[in-house]
Design a protein around this nucleic acid. Sequence first.
DNA 1: CTCCCGATAT
DNA 2: ATATCAGGAG
Length: 216
Amino acid sequence: MLNNTQIRQCLDAMAEMFPDAEGELVHSNPFELVIAVLLSAQCTDKLVNKVTADLFQKYKTPEDYLAVPLEEVENDIRSIGLYRSKAKNIQKLCRTLLDDYNGEVPQTKEELVKLAGVGRKTANVVASIAFNEPAIAVDTHVERVSKRLGICRWKDSVIEVENTLMRKVPRDEWSVTHHRMIFFGRYHCKARNPNCPECPLLELCREGKKRMKKTG
DNA sequence: CTCCCGATAT
DNA sequence: ATATCAGGAG
């Protein structure tokens, strides 16, 4: 496991590699962000942006998504994958916004996770990006990077990873760290073919050293 | 735990 | 062909 100094090295290296890391989901208000993040589950941001380009032209409000049959929403997001459950969740979420929140997106994580299709990770992303609430959303990249580097243990659950990061990273760096870890994971410490040979963190990375030994 | 599920990289 | 993609619900 890495000590606090080594974790600091990780954060600094990621900051140097990806100084401009930020969310890549295109949106112009909290409602669009919720829809975009919901759609992004098990799916790349690039593909989500391709779909929402048309989607957000057609559907501006919760009422708009409820004014058409479920099959029409399904069809409009089909290329995303998991489209049946996501379409159903979108309409259910819109119904809740109208019934319980006056058509607005609630601002706290506690309220956000009550919405259909919004779990812990999505709630963290929305709270962080739309409402400036410090949060570390643990997705597949954050989890993989944290475990490979040794910031947390391999067997840790998503919530344990999140708690460890919140404990080890200063609160005012949570959101930016979240984005940098995602960029680091997406473009450098990739799931399939991590770029260990050119990694500034190789010397303190247990997984990286193991891989370098294996593949030369 | 399983299921949802199309697009993409390898 | 197959693993993986900014997960969540049942």
